[in-house]
Design a protein around this nucleic acid. Sequence first.
RNA 1: UGGGCUGUCGCCAAGCGGUAAGGCACAGGACUUUGACUCCUGCAUCCGAAGGUUCAAAUCCUUCCAGCUCAGCCA
Length: 571
Amino acid sequence: MDKDNGHILLNTGAFIHNAIRTDLEGRLCDLRTRFPPEPGGFLHIGNARAVYINFELAKIYGGKCNLRMDDTNPVKEEAEFVQAIQDEIRWLGYEWDGEVRFASDYFDIFYDCAVDLIKKGLAFVCDMSAEEIRASFGGIDKAGTESPYRNRSAEENLDLFERMKNGEFPDGSRTLRAKIDMASSNLNLRDPVIYRITRKTHSNTGDKWCIYPMYDYAHPLEDAIEGITHSLCNVEFEDHRPIYEWYVNRLDRFTVKPRQMEFASLAVTNTVMGKRHIRKLVAEGKIGGWDDPRLVTLSGMKRRGYPASAIREFLGATGVAKAQSTADFGLLEHYVREHLKPMSKVVMAVLEPLKVIIENLPEGVTETLDVPYNTDDPSAGSRAVPFTREIYIERDDFMEVPEKKFFRLAPGKEVRLKGAYIVLCTGVEKDAEGNITAVRCTYDPATKSGAARTPQGDSGMQTDGAETRKVKGVLHWVSAEAALPIAAHLYDTLVLDAPETETGWVENPNSMVVMENALAEPSLANATPDDRFQFMRQGYFCLDEKKASQGGKPVYNRTVGLKSSYKPPAP
RNA sequence: UGGGCUGUCGCCAAGCGGUAAGGCACAGGACUUUGACUCCUGCAUCCGAAGGUUCAAAUCCUUCCAGCUCAGCCA
């Protein structure tokens, strides 16, 4: 049942596997990876790929994976994210080794290492402003110019750096820089900044520090401190590997040298993942928030009803490579359906109700039918469904003048009501404007569902007696008097066609359609957000975990629709 | 324009010198009390392009082309 044990990952990312196997043989130490988010936002499916890769790799090779908050730059209100990120990773199905770690816990070590670099003549305090540094940087095809402060003595640098730490200089007035090569074709090597002065209160260290380390400097040290053997990151950091190695190799205190490897980040069609894009959509009121079910944030996908196992399999299926790729949203949906199928109860709900009157069933009579939750899986059990004179069917399931190959209800035609009887349409009721207000039918009592079903079910559903009629159409329905009013939220992709681009995207105006008058069968009265349902012929739904409709009705999110090969005939 | 990386079916993706796996999508068909599921069948004489090496190349070499990426005191 659990088909994603990481074996999928073994079928991809050969370059990583090869590197790990080779490294593991020589070093006599266990694999240790890490997932190092900056606690400044919620995780989305792109981040989830990094989570997946790091944790699954550790699992495959019997190693460990750390969770580290990369909080080298003080940001406000990160406590919320620190907790959310942990919840999201656990929901995805992973547990990190030991406690959550914080880069800020290593600030003292970072400082000591910087002192080491200064003593070795590998770092210097630079008095240039940000603008001046930028101006001296040169260009993509032009060497930069060296800082006039580059050749200060170690003693002077030590003194200045300590005073930087002690708060003697204003924000941005000085930096500590690595002394590498201002002419390097790799821009990251042009005397990169190691420390900047910025008086911001850090959520973890408070006001202890007024100097904070840069990512390029801190990250390799964090990895080395934690004994990370393989530091997996996005290809955009490929250019940073030389600087990563430069620091790691110049600091003697680290015996295990972590190795950075890169993989391409994951893009998905028809959605937006960028932090600022999402923020914009929220600000404009286009979506409800970071956990909007239309978003591919982990909280959004959870709320929408995506099983974590489906996301994991999707992540495995899209592979680990260095080539930039954009996965079809449809592939994600495929795995969501596949995982939802065995865990869902098939129930009936009518999204857009049309009344049907069963003429030959007296008023006040309720027949209680026992309908299996899953025709394909008897072990799923069954529930009671009331059948009454007035019921509702889907408006789309009736056509007064049926088109070709319309297998549903139309005057003079027969259909089966799922779990009940075959009904024959005898007429239509209309209002003054000619709108159809109700459909009249008669039911055939001899066609009761499963009346003589064989125990093995080898011949499927049989009817008793001589009734052997088969009808092509099987409709879902709900009893008018027992129906539960619900609101159904139908989602579509946020973006039409193209994936997120620099220039923007085409929003889908119908990314959410609210069916305010939907009706569900009474068995849903005790549903919880953890339940998974398939609304027969409509798709997979789950009870929204935080929302109730205006009228106080429960809100059901359509996780994903069912596939359909039904094509209306061309006009 | 300098550096780095990448280019196998519409989308992912195996393949690593021996004659193009698989999944999604798509198109037919079977089955069906979900037009779902399931099950068959089809879907790259070709691996960005052009040369070359070899008995043999997507895999090696050369050149070219295209895409992504880098000039925060962000991560």
